[in-house]
Design a protein around this nucleic acid. Structure first.
Lengths: 171, 171
DNA sequence: ACCTCACCATACGGTAGCGTACGGATTTGT
DNA sequence: ACAAATCCGTACGCTACCGTATGGTGAGGT
């Protein structure tokens, strides 16, 4: 529930009174479960990190070939803009002391996974790392574009293939 | 001044009372110049759009070769994270009715410019468009990474060259 | 039957920002 | 010199949120 609010209204929406109202409850109830607003936010973020970060990787791991994993990863963004709503909300609140460490851990985890993926495809370690950072940049950037200016991203299928070709092109 | 606040504290920082305090003035003064907070925000955004959007393009245009223009564009992000602070602040507030249209115009303008750039390099129109969207995604994504998780982006010089190679690689 | 405790509601005070009212000062036009 | 326009400050009410205090209710244990 708090996660839905986070996705829709950003970190600011993970607040005691709005959430209580949304649940048909009152503040008194909320403050019994959580000592304060920060604790509520931290619990929400921890839950998201625990349940949804690995979820993306698991989904991608379902594909056998590394290239198909990449394809699925990028297709994930282009097909469902809502899926990355929490990510974008967190990036938007990157200065919040409760958000920053979560963002760092998730980013590291994902980039490391991408490094593995590119190494599995056959690129040497240094090269794989550059490709991973590049690919994750594309991921973040396309997620932003899809929600802020979706009309720019037309011909999605072709764009997807083009993106894949670009990040996996041999030097 | 309002632009500095926007870059530092996001759209929420472009508020009447904080800005007035920052200027050593009071609300009374602020509300003489602007009818309300929204007008203040709109004026700030319009000014940024007018002065700083073309500034990037002008800076890039200083380079003769299209490839060097791309290099300068991406180097711009990797070297100075502060430079894209306003962009990120706007993306973070993309749901604000005053922000959304500005974001759309700026995005369109920049992507269109990138299309021109790739066409100048010699790619056909369709291809150029895909590369432009891809390149702008990388731009946005790297800007995010640089502020949210800068430690991920090491070996910047190499990453820059890698990025350029990726977006300009022949199919 | 009674007590305890988990759970929830009501009511209150505090803060930060928006917007308005109005009065004082300073500059400008005539 | 005087009036008007311009510019700024103080004071107030309003809203949304945080956090606390305190009382109420229903389920289990004894």
């Amino acid at each position: 529930m708090a996660l839905a609010a986070l996705a829709e209204g950003g970190v600011a929406a993970v607040a005691v009174e709005p959430l209580a109202a949304r649940l048909g409850a009152t503040k008194g109830s909320a403050y019994w479960h959580f000592p304060n607003r920060e604790a509520l936010l931290r619990a929400t973020l921890e839950r998201w990190e625990r349940e949804h970060t690995e979820a993306v990787i698991d989904l991608v791991e379902a594909e056998a070939a590394p290239r198909d994993r990449l394809r699925r990863l990028f297709g994930f963004v282009l097909e469902d803009a809502r899926s990355s709503a929490v990510e974008l909300a967190l990036l938007a609140a990157k200065d919040d002391p409760a958000v920053a460490p979560v963002l760092l851990r998730v980013t590291d985890r994902r980039v490391d996974y991408l490094v593995e993926l590119f190494e599995a495809i056959g690129f040497p370690a240094d090269d794989a790392r550059h490709r991973a950072v590049l690919a994750y940049s594309v991921y973040l950037g396309q997620a932003q574009l899809m929600t802020a200016a979706p009309h720019v991203v037309r011909a999605r299928r072709a764009l997807l293939e083009h993106t894949l070709a670009a990040v996996t092109a041999r030097a």
